[in-house]
Design a protein around this nucleic acid. Structure first.
Lengths: 100, 100
DNA sequence: TTGGTATATCGGGAAAAGTCGATATATATT
DNA sequence: AATATATATCGACTTTTCCCGATATACCAA
């Protein structure tokens, strides 16, 4: 993964906030029905409402985070759930500590 | 310091490269005369030549990195020397590990 | 198969970033 | 004071990002 793309993905207040929310999904998304935060994460609609931006914007933002390996997606029926990508985040930490 | 500004500063191939070069100034800037890499760092001109972009662009890039607390500047005579800002980089590492 | 809901993609207008050459400023030398 | 060098700032143009509404696609239920 291109390092620049990772940092671009993080260069936006809302996207940073989403990643932060996904650290504690149960607290940040108490309204999600049938929540399976561990396995799949949080669905797009819940994130969209909390972020207060349009559906298309949040969908786009999530795919930017996904392309940067910062979150991963699971489709279940008509919902797409997103959660943190621990490997990608560990990789990022490694970059910071060893290359910068 | 605004987190978004830090990540924006890192969202550029040349700026990432500069930070990486400054990890090992003696190896990356062997031509700098009267080098005092430990105390002051590397001067703008050396970085500019190595990066291959215009003087104004590199000056601007260094100030973006400085505003993000990723490097610090020392003026000595007509030269400005830049080196890594260890505190800022440690702060960044902390953000990644605790908030994302 | 028709309709409803969730998400993704497309097209676009406004704002920001990338990058340059020209110019200004600060310092050093003569 | 005049000139030379290093760096910073300015103005402009191009490319990218932000964010939206509209539309398409995928899936579900009746």
């Amino acid at each position: 993964m291109d390092q620049v793309e990772i940092f671009k993905a993080l260069s936006n207040k809302t996207r940073l906030q989403i990643l932060n929310w996904l650290k504690a999904p149960a607290e940040n998304f108490p309204d999600q029905p049938n929540a399976d935060f561990e396995n799949v994460g949080v669905c797009v609609g819940q994130i969209q409402v909390k972020a207060g931006l349009s559906q298309s914007t949040i969908s786009e933002y999530l795919s930017i985070l996904q392309r940067a390996d910062l979150v991963c997606a699971t489709r279940v029926g008509q919902w797409t759930y997103y959660k943190r990508n621990k490997e990608g985040l560990a990789q990022l930490s490694k970059i910071i500590n060893s290359e910068l």
